[in-house]
Simulated scan of single mutants.
Amino acid sequence: MELALVIALIVIALGFDYTNGFHDAANAIATSVSTRALTPRLALAMAAVCNFLGAFVGTAVAETVGKGIISTPSGTHGLVVVISALIGAITWNLVTWYFGLPSSSSHALIGGLVGAGIASSSVVMWSGIVDKVVIPMVLSPAIGFVGAFLLMTAILWLFRHRNPGRTTRGFRMAQSVSAAAMALGHGLQDAQKTMGVIFLALVTVGYVNNGDAIPLWVKLSAATAISLGTYSGGWRIMRTLGRRIIHLDPARGFASESVAAGVLYVMAIGLHAPVSTTHTITSAVMGAGSTKRLSAVRWGVAKGIVTAWVLTIPAAGLVAALCYGLAHLILE
């Protein structure tokens, strides 16, 4: 029974990783595709490769998710808690993907863990959640918005006397680099969250100790799942992020991607915080777009996106809690 649950959990976790990939593919490449810096398939292939490589740049985020959110009961009970959390996260990913809303897979996972943890009377590490989740959740979009606005303002001033056509071509080429950096940051953040969940499950059943390093096969499987999901593409969300918020030009696409990538690296490597790539790039797109004029941003679309952000953690947590309650009744 226990082994079967472990295998089921790993399969579900990798399924979540796959949905994370196609749900969040837009994070890395929507701006590059919308500005025609890259063709869709080339952009997806590049993002998939960079996602895979980014998964191996440290394990700090994986350790935060695996050790700093909840402390699960041992044995099969703990496995049921983690499986319920994953189902809650996957459900929210699919709902927001269907409606084309760029919500956070990261916060869906964290919401699922917290919801299942509360329902199962597990120890929820609230201080760690505040420090590593809530504060970065507020800071990363704010930094993304302000940083992209300032960088784009500087670009407009520096290139104000340059030939517009040549400048546009130059930034279109530069976007290939900024999109790759964004995809690498996405792998660094999001693939590691799945690693952390699988590691949490292995600790729960005693297959590894809490202080052990994350096994190589866990890293490889998580990196592969998210890169395959990325390559499959999330076209609904890509249209929202690349065109519906604001029609970007290559310079603004470069500014938003560069700032968002920088925020992801600092949060992951410097603060060990599992932040949302979706929140960060979406806010950066709004910040860069605002340099045209505030009315250029479609704030009605932005309002819908922010609403999805607010609902993500409680909605995923509620589904996870319901799944745990149902599983607990069946296994009793």
Results as ranks from 00 to 15, higher is better:
residue 138 V to L: 15
residue 210 N to H: 13
residue 231 Y to I: 14
residue 268 A to Y: 10
residue 254 F to S: 03
residue 229 G to W: 00
residue 183 A to Y: 05
residue 270 G to M: 11
residue 241 L to W: 05
residue 191 A to D: 07
residue 229 G to T: 07
residue 249 D to G: 12
residue 157 W to D: 13
residue 185 G to F: 09
residue 215 P to Y: 08
residue 238 M to R: 00
residue 259 V to G: 01
residue 270 G to L: 13
residue 187 G to H: 02
residue 163 N to I: 01
residue 258 S to L: 15
residue 207 Y to P: 02
residue 180 A to H: 00
residue 258 S to H: 03
residue 138 V to R: 06
residue 201 A to P: 05
residue 182 M to Q: 14
residue 190 D to K: 01
residue 177 V to D: 11
residue 242 G to Q: 03
residue 250 P to I: 07
residue 200 L to V: 07
residue 221 S to E: 00
residue 248 L to W: 03
residue 189 Q to T: 08
residue 246 I to L: 12
residue 194 T to S: 10
residue 214 I to H: 07
residue 199 F to N: 04
residue 188 L to V: 08
residue 217 W to A: 04
residue 139 L to M: 15
residue 213 A to N: 12
residue 189 Q to W: 04
residue 205 V to I: 15
residue 183 A to H: 03
residue 177 V to Q: 09
residue 197 V to L: 14
residue 186 H to T: 07
residue 231 Y to T: 02
residue 203 V to I: 15
residue 140 S to R: 02
residue 184 L to D: 03
residue 214 I to G: 09
residue 212 D to F: 08
residue 206 G to F: 09
residue 231 Y to C: 04
residue 168 T to D: 13
residue 262 G to D: 03
residue 204 T to V: 11
residue 184 L to T: 09
residue 199 F to V: 10
residue 138 V to Q: 03
residue 184 L to G: 04
residue 136 P to T: 11
residue 257 E to V: 00
residue 135 I to L: 15
residue 259 V to E: 06
residue 270 G to I: 14
residue 213 A to I: 07
residue 172 R to F: 08
residue 264 L to K: 09
residue 136 P to Y: 09
residue 172 R to M: 14
residue 170 G to F: 06
residue 198 I to R: 08
residue 176 S to H: 13
residue 221 S to Y: 01
residue 143 I to N: 05
residue 225 A to Y: 00
residue 207 Y to T: 14
residue 185 G to W: 01
residue 175 Q to A: 09
residue 230 T to D: 03
residue 218 V to P: 04
residue 268 A to I: 06
residue 238 M to P: 06
residue 152 M to W: 04
residue 258 S to I: 12
residue 194 T to F: 05
residue 202 L to D: 02
residue 226 I to L: 13
residue 135 I to T: 11
residue 207 Y to K: 14
residue 262 G to V: 10
residue 163 N to G: 04
residue 179 A to Y: 00
